[in-house]
């Protein structure tokens, strides 16, 4: 009856996808600061959207012949030295900026730069191209950085509620006309009209759709996005919005604990089923508690629920295709 029951059969495949794609999930706290190194290649290319349209993107990629949008999520610890090398393979100048850290460097066409900085206050930050704003960010040059408190594997900030797992939920909205214009090194001149909506670079594929259940295609099962937990497996979502649309993050099954808003620690933690996510790099940190769904009768401890943006235009692709937008699933196991 539950449409995604068969996921369990493929859990071995998912596990390997996890370790391959998401080294940050292996985060362990350390007693001493370390130097964390990462190389990004600025690359470009086309990404096929759910309606078959190929849209131009640039990304902070893992190799010169890949295109990663968003760039890999990074998790470091407060006090770590973070060494980022950016290799610009393109014919356009770009900039690498780390939000909240006073770090920004221009990387000219065909050149490379290495910058080092000390990871600052615990929290969730964008790294992104701040030049030609907001266009270079919108065309795909963005990613997430988490700074963990010292010695902590389970807190967002010192004294915060604890979590067991953490995810980045990086949302984006895409106007292909703007992307083509940026490709052509011109400034977009049309009214912004987003047609695709992504979570960690992917969109939903409902059961029966081409690519459904493929973690490389379907945001509903992408292990970077989908939540899996037993009762009590509290999961932190570092929610970020690279796009221009203001959103409403809506979880089914449990209310979320709302810890931070745009980098600010909230004075009280509210339990919410919809959380306001601002456009233009809005952020929030949420914990999905994986409690028993409180209004079930009889009680249940297993099953699937969606997380979707309640700004429902974001659940479409190309002007239709409901459920092919920014959505993932939450699995009580």
């Amino acid at each position: 009856m539950r449409r995604r029951n068969f996921l369990k059969i493929s859990s071995g495949a998912l596990a390997s996808a996890l370790t391959g794609a998401s080294s940050y999930l292996l985060w362990q706290p350390r007693a001493h600061a370390e130097t964390i190194s990462k190389t990004f290649y600025i690359t470009h290319g086309y990404i096929t959207q759910p309606d078959g349209v190929n849209v131009y993107f640039r990304g902070f990629s893992n190799s010169s012949n890949s295109l990663n949008v968003p760039g890999d999520a990074l998790i470091v610890q407060q006090g770590d030295t973070v060494r980022i090398t950016v290799i610009n393979t393109l014919g356009t100048d770009h900039r690498f900026t780390v939000q909240g850290h006073g770090v920004s460097t221009t990387v000219r066409a065909g050149e490379q730069r290495t910058i080092s900085f000390t990871a600052g206050n615990p929290g969730t930050y964008f790294y992104y191209d701040s030049s030609n704003a907001p266009y270079n960010r919108l065309v795909g040059l963005h990613g997430g950085l988490a700074v963990m408190p010292r010695f902590s594997s389970n807190r967002v900030y010192d004294g915060s509620p604890t979590f067991k797992y953490q995810k980045f939920w990086l949302f984006h909205d895409i106007d292909p006309v703007w992307h083509a214009r940026i490709r052509d090194r011109r400034t977009p001149s049309t009214r912004y009209s987003p047609r695709y909506f992504t979570l960690n670079g992917l969109s939903g594929r409902p059961p029966g759709a081409p690519g459904a259940m493929d973690p490389a295609v379907d945001s509903m099962v992408d292990p970077r996005s989908a939540l899996h937990g037993h009762i009590g497996d509290r999961t932190l979502m570092r929610v970020m919005n690279a796009g221009l649309c203001q959103q409403s993050v809506h979880c089914h099954g449990n209310h979320v604990e709302w810890l931070t808003d745009n980098g600010k620690i909230l004075p009280d933690i509210w339990s919410k089923d919809c959380v306001y996510l601002e456009g233009n790099m809005g952020r929030c940190d949420l914990i999905y508690p994986f409690d028993y769904p409180p209004d079930a009768y009889p009680r249940v401890s297993r099953g699937a629920y969606p997380m979707h943006l309640h700004t429902e235009m974001s659940q479409t692709a190309g002007g239709g295709l409901y459920m092919f937008g920014a959505i993932t699933d939450i699995y009580f196991e």
Binding site: P207, G253, A304
Partner: peptide, 13 residues
């Protein structure tokens, strides 16, 4: 927040 089969989401149920 009921059981999934009472949550009314088409693609889940």
């Amino acid at each position: 927040e009921p059981a999934p089969h009472s949550d009314g989401v088409g693609h889940i149920t």
